[in-house]
Design a protein around this nucleic acid. Structure first.
Lengths: 145, 145
DNA sequence: CATTATTCAGACAATTTTATCCGAAATAAA
DNA sequence: TTTATTTCGGATAAAATTGTCTGAATAATG
């Protein structure tokens, strides 16, 4: 059941690490994040370039450079990250793959699937990085392998 | 949002076509099904071999051979097809990809995701081919591109 | 100015998924 | 008994996703 690509999974985990482990300085280096959450530096760099292009991160090159959130963590919702990395049509797809599945021409499981997607969307839209970071900091929950 | 592989999507659609278009004779040919729902004969053959191996279908070779449901359509649930084609660990995976995510060592979105998976599982376990076939036959719903 | 640390850009490779194809085996029908 | 039809098994190819690597651009610091 692969609801999110590896790219999104890594991206969300990396952003949560950033928020949960503020570095004191403005920017945090990609290398440090990759090391801490145990994933490929180069792959994470690619993901963060995308998030920078989509306006979720700022970046700054050179020594003491790195990346930083473009908005307060309380204003970045999971759905923003998913849309940035999976595309804005993320919630538009039919469970059975029928093109143009919708109210007018529904597939056999359309109504059910519409409800599931709605629930997921509501939850991802209502959950901020700040919110989840608090659960991580309080050790209610884990982020590492 | 790719919840089901192409394999599962095709498999479910093909089985629904079978149930909704009984052929009179005991077996229905894979070629006919592939033609009617507009997908690759060879790919569908591969999918059906798997469903036969998993006990969801019977098959019979030779002229007037083909495949047939191994049980009444009212007893084949969507979850059976998904388990057969995606694996029995289908509902075991963490949204963020953390290995061993569960009650003891949850990821930040574990509780939410557990509920979503439960809802999906309940629905797929409660929906039979017969049930959906009735919606198709009454043209409440479509199966073709 | 030289060195070092960092992101940026994109080529390349590996892996997985999806799709195509061919020949063999089975079996009904001519 | 021959021929036609069908599934079976697996090799191969194509496409998408995931992961690796190299060099360039940028900027702080000695």
């Amino acid at each position: 059941m692969k609801v999110l690509s590896q790219t999104s999974k890594y991206g969300i985990r990396a952003l949560l690490y950033m928020v949960s482990h503020p570095s004191g300085s403005e920017y945090m280096s990609i290398g440090e994040i990759a090391r801490e959450i145990d994933l490929s530096f180069h792959f994470l760099t690619k993901i963060f370039r995308e998030l920078t292009a989509k306006g979720i991160l700022y970046s700054y090159r050179g020594p003491s450079g790195g990346i930083a959130l473009a908005k307060p963590a309380s204003e970045i919702m999971l759905v923003d990250i998913v849309f940035a990395l999976e595309g804005k049509d993320y919630f538009d797809q039919c469970l059975l793959g029928l093109p143009g599945c919708g109210h007018a021409k529904p597939c056999p499981v359309h109504d059910f699937w519409k409800d599931v997607k709605h629930d997921i969307r509501v939850h991802l839209s209502g959950t901020s990085l700040q919110h989840l970071s608090e659960k991580i900091v309080s050790e209610e929950v884990r982020l590492l392998l």
